[in-house]
Structures are given as structure tokens and as C-alpha cells.
Design a protein around this nucleic acid. Structure first.
Length: 215
DNA sequence: TTGATGATTCGCT
DNA sequence: GCGAATCATCAAT
């Protein structure tokens, strides 16, 4: 007989072909998986941030297209991976049609498959901390610059994203200002699952320069 | 070519 | 709570 519950469904490209602020909350509860020679690790997303693109002062795309952010200007459903602070990687999922550089930063989640491998990569004891933070999430999944541009909608891709087993109800989602950004720090484009402990701690970035003309 | 900075994390006080 | 680690990227020279 057919199983009562179908297997996980990979998210179609159309899912990402809309504004980042719409994609971000919809990604909560979804699963990102990375298959490598060492094995498979999957993370159920608990916290994300939306970046609107060239109109968003906090986005890497704010100053226009460069070699680093080129993937964000491309087709939706691709991974934008960048290197920062001289030692960390962070991963985004590109939204909207080519030419519109919006994306969703994957900030935190719970490792739901491949815990043993994730633990080896992260060398931390607490399971809750394996993917709690954008750079930690990348390290647990084994994501680096070689995944920049990966198509997460391709069934043959090592990096894929799956629909949640059960959708997260809207009432279970919280939102607030984005972490670590000094510009556009007032918009509430960070989304997380309220009841989920595997969410990164919020730290406000010291304002570099108040908007021109401020006191 | 040079200099400043960062969508962070970790360890120490 | 504070600062070091550590370097790709980008604006200015």
C-alpha cells in the first residue's frame, strides 16, 4: 500500500520567486540538506533574515553588483555563500527574478540528520549549539565558497531545501530587527520560531554613523 | 596599492 | 561585557 505520509518535497523554484520578506517566514521549519563525501547533514531552519537588495542599506547588494555578490543578482533558488571576519562563512538563498538582488540569510536551526558528522565538524558538546548562528550553521553543514551559486532546486544538487513536514503556524513566528547590522537596524526583517531554543542570541550592532544630519 | 571594515564566534574577565 | 582572531572585499589613493 502507499505510505500514509509522502516523503519530503523539495521546494520548487517558484517558492523563491517572490520578495525576501515573503520567503523568509515561509522558510521556517523547512530543511536544508548537504550531501558530501563525508556524509549527509540536514538542518531544520528556526531563524532567518530577509535582505531586500539594492534598496536595502544592510544588504551586500546595496552598492551594486560585484564579483562577490553576483549570485544574488541571478536566478532565485540558488545559494549565495560569502566569507566574512576572515574566518566564517554564511549562506543565503536568493529570491526574486534575475536582476533583483534579494536573499534570505539562514541564521540558525536544529540539526535533524547527521548529528554525528555535524558534531565532528563543530567540535562542541551541546547539540543545541551545532547550528545556532549563521556561521555555525554553515560549519555544521560543511558549506563553504565552493557551494556559492549552488542550485538548491535541482534534485541532483548536493545542497537542497525541503518543505516542512508540518507548516509552522503564523502565530508561532516572531519577528524583530536583524542581528549585527548597523544600517537599517530598525526594520523587523528577522524571523524566528518563537518556541525554538536553537535561535541565535540577539546583539545590536553599535551604530556606525547615524543617518546623515542626525545629532 | 593601501587601509578600513565586517549579515561572527569564542574565550577571558 | 569586551576584545582578539584573521582576511576577502571594496573605496579611495
Amino acid at each position: 500500500m502507499t505510505p500514509p505520509v509522502p516523503g519530503p518535497r523539495q521546494l520548487p523554484r517558484g517558492f523563491f520567486d517572490r520578495p525576501a520578506t515573503a520567503v523568509a517566514p515561509a522558510l521556517l521549519g523547512c530543511v536544508i540538506s548537504h550531501q558530501t563525501a563525508a556524509g549527509m547533514v540536514a538542518v531544520t531552519l528556526a531563524e532567518v533574515e530577509a535582505y531586500a537588495g539594492e534598496s536595502d542599506p544592510a544588504s551586500h547588494a546595496f552598492r551594486g553588483r560585484t564579483a562577490r555578490n553576483a549570485v544574488m543578482f541571478g536566478a532565485p533558488g540558488h545559494a549565495y555563500v560569502y566569507f566574512t571576519y576572515g574566518m566564517h562563512f554564511c549562506v543565503n538563498l536568493v529570491c526574486q527574478p534575475p536582476g533583483q538582488a534579494s536573499a534570505v540569510l539562514l541564521r540558525a536551526g536544529r540539526v535533524t540528520d547527521g548529528v554525528v558528522l555535524a558534531r565532528v565538524r563543530r567540535s562542541v558538546l551541546r547539540e543545541l549549539d551545532l547550528a545556532r548562528g549563521p556561521a555555525r550553521l554553515c560549519e555544521a553543514l560543511g558549506i563553504d565558497r565552493s557551494q556559492d551559486g549552488a542550485d538548491v532546486c535541482d534534485p541532483a544538487s548536493p545542497l537542497r531545501v525541503w518543505a516542512p513536514q508540518a507548516p509552522v503556524p503564523a502565530v508561532g513566528i516572531s519577528r524583530g530587527p536583524r542581528v549585527g547590522v548597523s544600517r537599517a537596524a530598525d526594520v523587523a526583517w528577522r524571523f524566528w520560531i518563537t518556541s525554538e531554543p536553537a535561535v541565535s542570541a540577539y546583539r545590536r550592532q553599535a551604530a556606525r554613523r547615524p543617518a546623515a544630519g542626525a545629532t
